[in-house]
Amino acid sequence: MAFKPSKRKKHNIDRVEAKLSLNSMMDIFIIILLFLLKTYSAHGSFLPQNKNLQLPTAAIRNHVNVGLELVATSETIFVEKQPVVRMQDVNLEKSHVVADGIILPLFRVLHTYAIKANKLEKTYGIKFTGSIVIKADKNLDYRELVRVMQTCGKAKYHNIHLAVANK
């Protein structure tokens, strides 16, 4: 008959400390993170959630070309994520905002980008294609859209791409 082990006495049992190896998990996370960051910045497959910017839907499979990004929400017009003009001022056709169908603050910003792009073309040979991607809210009025496009055209951005969400 076996004796009952003493409760007082310390039994020197060598317990091996189990360690969780995090290396492989780290690799997975780094790959996912890099993938997410790259897709977010370059391709534009992801869109930041915004109530004021809901793209129209269409079954068009053409890819969005990389170009200057213009976002027209129901509240503000942004160029390269920088706010340029409030849509309310455009709607009210204030004299310092709209003249001859051109949105003046937007024209100034686009013109600056065009000058920079022309300089780059002269200095480094990077061709200025005049391409611009317009991401506009689906409830935007046709009049505002035409104004935005006219302004783009006047600032030498003739190659316009209207971004749509695929159905």
């Binding site: 534009g44 497959s45 992801f46 869109l47 793209l55 269409a58 068009i60 499979r61 053409n62 890819h63 969005v64 070309n65 991607v133 496009m149 190659n159 316009i160 791409h161 209207l162 971004a163 749509v164 969400a165 695929n166």
Partner: peptide, 8 residues
């Protein structure tokens, strides 16, 4: 959202 583009 998969984006598409209409060229004008």
């Amino acid at each position: 959202v998969k984006l598409g583009a209409i060229e004008l």
